[in-house]
Amino acid sequence: MSEQSLLRLSIAVTAALAAFGIIVGLLSGSFAIVFDGFYSLADAFMTLLALLVSKLIATSAEPTAKGKLIDRFSLGFWHLEPMVLGLNGTLLMGAAIFAFISAVGSLMAGGRAIDFGPAIIFAVVTMVIAFAMWLFCRRANRELKSGFIALDSQAWAMSAALASALVIAFALGHFIQGTELEWLGPYIDPGVLAIICVVILPAPFSNVRQAVADILLVTPVDLKRHVDAVAEDIVERHGFLSYRAYVARVGRGKQIELFFIAPSDWPARHLSEWDAIRDEIGDAIGDEGPDRWLTIVFTSDPEWAD
C-alpha cells in the first residue's frame, strides 16, 4: 500500500471513530470520550493535510512534472512536511492541555456522573480498531519510511493506549455501582481524562522539536558526519586542496551541497571526467532518489565555496 492510500484509510477510520466518540460521549455524559473524539477529529484533519502535502511532494519529484505550481516551487515541497508535522504536534499538545485543565476543574467541582454502559462499549471498540490500525501502519511504514505515516502510527498507538485506560476505568466504575465505593463514580471520568492528558502530552513534543529543527535547517549530525567522511576521502584520493559541505534535512528531503577546492594550476579536464567524480561522490553518499537534493561544485576560488 502506498503512503497516500494508507493516509486515506487512516483518515476514513479516524473520522468514523471521532464521530462515534463524540456522539457516545455526549449521550453518556463522558468528557473523556468527547475529548477522545475531538482528539481523533483533529488528528483526522491533520492527516488530511499531510495527505495533500504528500501528494505535492510526490508530484514535484516526478521528472516530467509541469505546471504553474511546480514553476512557483522549483525547489520542491519538502519544506511543507515539517510545517505540517509541527502544526499537528502543537494542536494535539494544545488539546491535551485544555482537556487537562477542564478535567482538574471538574474534579474540584465534585466530579461528573456518567452512564458506564455505552462508555464501555465505545472504549472496547475504539481500543480494538486503534490497536489494529497501529499494527497495520507500523508494518507498512517499514518499507515506506514516511514521517507522516510514523506520526500517524504514533497517534494510533496513543489512541489505543487511551482507549485501554478508558476500558479499565469505565469497567471499574460500572462494578463499584451499588457498593460502598459508589461515591468514587463521578470522579472516574475526569480523573481518567486528567491522567490520559498527562501521559499523551509529551508524545507529540519530539515531533514538534524535530519539525522546528527542520524548519530552521539545523544540520543533522549523523548526515553531516557521513558527508564529511565521503568528502575527505574524495579530497585525499583526487588531490583537491579542501572542501566545504552544507547539509540540511527538511522533512523527508536531504539537501547536500559540496564544494571542492582544486589547485588553480590543474590542467583542463573533459566534462565527462568531472561528471565521473560526481557520480563517485553520489554513489558514496547514497540514498539516491527524489528525496535527495545533491549539488556538487568544483572550483579553484574558495570564495565560491564560502
Score class of each variant (00 low, 15 high):
150 A>R: 01
156 W>I: 00
143 E>D: 09
189 D>W: 11
146 S>E: 00
45 F>H: 05
206 S>W: 09
15 A>S: 11
113 A>Y: 10
238 H>R: 15
55 K>W: 04
105 G>T: 03
87 L>I: 05
141 N>M: 02
53 V>M: 06
50 A>D: 00
278 R>I: 09
178 G>I: 13
136 F>L: 11
11 I>E: 01
179 T>M: 13
141 N>H: 00
95 A>R: 03
37 G>S: 13
171 A>Q: 07
16 A>T: 14
258 L>C: 09
75 L>V: 10
91 L>S: 05
260 F>I: 05
17 L>A: 02
83 M>I: 15
118 P>T: 09
122 F>V: 04
60 S>F: 10
134 W>P: 01
102 S>K: 15
18 A>N: 06
53 V>F: 05
287 D>C: 05
154 Q>T: 10
227 V>A: 10
107 L>W: 09
167 V>R: 08
243 Y>K: 12
114 I>W: 01
303 E>Y: 15
119 A>N: 06
98 F>Y: 14
289 G>Y: 01
78 W>K: 08
114 I>G: 01
133 M>E: 03
42 A>Q: 03
255 Q>T: 03
125 V>R: 03
170 F>G: 04
33 I>P: 03
248 A>N: 02
174 H>P: 03
269 R>D: 08
254 K>H: 10
247 V>A: 03
303 E>P: 08
265 D>G: 08
60 S>M: 08
102 S>R: 13
118 P>C: 12
18 A>T: 04
78 W>F: 13
210 Q>H: 15
183 W>T: 14
104 V>N: 05
206 S>P: 04
279 D>A: 12
43 D>Y: 01
140 A>C: 08
187 Y>D: 10
286 G>N: 11
90 T>S: 15
231 A>Y: 01
245 A>S: 08
20 F>D: 02
11 I>N: 02
194 A>N: 04
88 N>R: 13
189 D>G: 11
60 S>C: 08
254 K>F: 08
82 P>L: 10
285 I>Q: 02
108 M>S: 11
238 H>V: 08
273 E>S: 14
64 T>G: 10
273 E>W: 14
246 Y>D: 06
28 S>A: 15
121 I>E: 04
211 A>M: 11
50 A>Q: 01
281 I>M: 13
182 E>V: 14
302 P>E: 14
251 G>E: 02
161 A>D: 07
221 V>L: 09
237 R>S: 13
59 T>Q: 14
200 I>E: 01
90 T>W: 04
194 A>E: 04
132 A>W: 14
13 V>N: 00
254 K>N: 07
53 V>C: 07
67 G>P: 07
39 Y>Q: 02
172 L>Q: 08
